[in-house]
Design a protein around this nucleic acid. Structure first.
Length: 509
RNA sequence: GGCCCCGUGGCGCAAUGGUAGCGCAGAUGACUUUUAAUCAUUUGGUUGCAGGUUCGAGUCCUGCCGGGGUCACCA
């Protein structure tokens, strides 16, 4: 049962007073002819069309929005209402309105946070602000809990200074609705997020790829190295996993005859959380026949710069004080070169895992003993990662940590795989996809063996995937990217939670 | 999971171990073109929870809860 606090109780009491005056606090009927922006635009057009600035014809509007500011001045009052696009001032004067309606304002029965509908004609105040000269004001919805108050002051140069803030991170995440209602920058971030995803779809559609949807509930999970969430189907008595990647389902579709497919959707990984990891996140994967990882590199570069241009209008972006330039071509380094640059260790000088481990320890790093060679190389790559501020492609990865990538010709240890990094963050992962079912089966078995040695939950062998591949899979290049991280870059947010409307948090006590 | 930081009215913040304060919001009143409106008066707190040290704890100690950072982990 809700226990109103002091401020809320005052609002509850106001509802009683409104009802006593015959005013419905949550009426069903609403009317709107203009958004705030449209109303202002209509008046500006009328002004510029009028031969005499004193003789602007009436522009009648009915606007709706949330009250964000109330300024009572006795027999005249001002309010700002806000809808999604903008703010508009209401000019309320007792002479222009029925007195009982004006009294609702005067008696402070309309609060900041309430939704109202205002009908009137457009005007400019003495100070020059476009406003509605209100003849009828209707309460649409009463706010009971007060939102944090942010006051805004417009500077002469048009910039807006805000006074007061709602900045408590926990409350902003738990009560995103309040964050959105109060912080316009939050609203902008999630608008832009939608634009990023729209631009990605547009690019991929234009590239001739088919958007598809594959199962989120999977009897066998795979395609990435992450622990899954487990769930259960009651009627079928079947354990199911929430997908950790789309890879294996998408590549089956190439066997089926599609040239290129993509999916944008949710992945779930049962791992630690951090500023760049959320248990559920949005992934983009595509697979395209008849290209290899070089072709994927080109596509990735073009896609990212396209999205940046679509949503920001430019090819560079300011991120946490750094200027990121997405213009292709990006720097391309082999993993071996990148590691040599960052650590002065050449892993090819240490072909045995034990040997490489010793070299890493000699450099001063503490690492878990007994890791496979590829894992050690990944550790070394992690040392180089923060240096990849501008878009950087790292290619040719160790075979033993890349079970779905084709081998580099005449090379026993590397596969045709690349990852790309921006702002020190891993953004995506791609391969020349393995399409030899015999090699794939060997790699699955090796992986299962290693998992068994490490006493880890082994991903069950996906025999159906091998069956599909045996029908013949065209050579293809595949690509995966963390969409949330791209949104971070394009909205200048340092934490993934700030680009997720509802980030995962511990249960509220 | 380890380590570090944080938790004080609705929001944002103060308070050498010694009477818990300030701004905004709220309430009451004044004001017919204000705009961070202004002016006067004024309400509101078991300082995240539970213990402990002390004559005395918002402050020091222990544990717990929640958040943030960082490291580890994360084909």
């Amino acid at each position: 049962m809700w226990q109103p606090n002091r401020l809320e109780q005052e609002r509850v009491d106001k509802i009683q007073e409104l009802e006593a005056r015959g005013v419905a606090p949550f009426p069903a009927r609403v009317e709107r002819t203009h958004t705030t922006i449209a109303a202002m635009g209509a008046y500006e057009s009328a002004e510029s069309a009028a031969p005499d600035p004193e003789q602007v014809p009436d522009v009648a509007v009915t606007v709706c929005g949330r009250v964000r500011r109330v300024n009572l001045k006795g027999k005249v009052s001002f309010m700002h209402i806000e809808d999604e696009q903008g703010r508009l001032q209401l000019f309320l004067r007792v002479n222009d309105m029925d007195e009982p309606v004006y009294d609702l304002v005067k008696d402070k029965l309309i609060d900041v946070d309430d939704f109202v509908q205002a009908a009137g004609v457009m005007m400019r105040t003495k100070a020059g602000e476009i406003s509605v000269r209100v003849s009828t004001l209707t309460l649409l919805s009463k706010g009971l809990s007060p939102l944090p108050v942010i006051k805004e002051a417009k500077q002469e140069d048009g910039t807006v200074i805000e006074y007061g803030e709602f900045s408590d991170t926990e409350q902003r995440y738990r009560q995103r609705y309040a964050d959105l209602a109060v912080n316009r920058t939050t609203r902008l971030v999630f608008r832009r997020r939608a634009e990023v995803i729209r631009a990605l779809r547009h690019f991929l559609d234009d590239a001739g790829m088919l958007e598809v949807e594959t199962p989120i509930l999977q009897p066998i999970y795979g395609g990435a190295a992450a622990r899954p969430f487990v769930t259960h189907h009651n009627q079928l008595h079947q354990d199911l996993y929430l997908r950790i990647s789309f890879e294996l389902y998408l590549k089956r579709l190439l066997v089926g005859g599609y040239d290129a497919v993509y999916e944008i959707g949710r992945d779930f990984r049962n791992e630690g959380v951090s500023f760049k990891h959320n248990p559920e996140f949005t992934m983009l994967e595509f697979y395209k026949a008849y290209i290899d990882y070089r072709g994927v590199m080109d596509l990735a570069e073009r896609m990212v710069v396209y999205v940046a241009e679509q949503v920001t209008g430019g090819t560079t972006v300011s991120y946490q004080g750094e200027t990121l330039d997405f213009t292709p071509p990006w720097q391309r380094l082999t993993a071996r070169e990148a590691i040599r640059n960052a650590t002065e260790i050449d892993y090819m000088d240490h072909p045995a895992a034990a040997d490489l481990e010793a070299a890493i320890r000699a450099s001063g790093d503490q690492i878990k003993p007994g890791q496979p060679w590829g894992k050690l190389i990944e550790h070394l790559l992690g040392k180089a990662e923060p240096g990849f501020v501008q878009p950087t492609i790292i290619y040719d990865y160790p075979l033993d940590i890349s079970p779905f990538a084709k081998r580099v010709a005449y090379d026993d240890v590397h596969v045709e795989r690349f990852e790309f990094f921006i702002a020190g963050m891993e953004m995506g992962n791609a391969f020349t996809e393995l399409n030899d079912p015999r090699d794939q089966e060997r790699r699955f078995l090796e992986m299962a063996e290693r998992f068994r040695e490490e006493d880890d939950d082994a991903a069950p062998l996906d025999t159906d995937y091998l069956r599909a591949m045996r029908y013949g899979m065209p050579p293809n290049g595949g690509f995966g990217m963390g969409v949330d991280r791209l949104v971070m870059l394009l909205t200048d947010q340092r934490n993934i939670r700030d680009v997720l409307l509802y980030p995962h948090l511990r249960e509220e006590k």
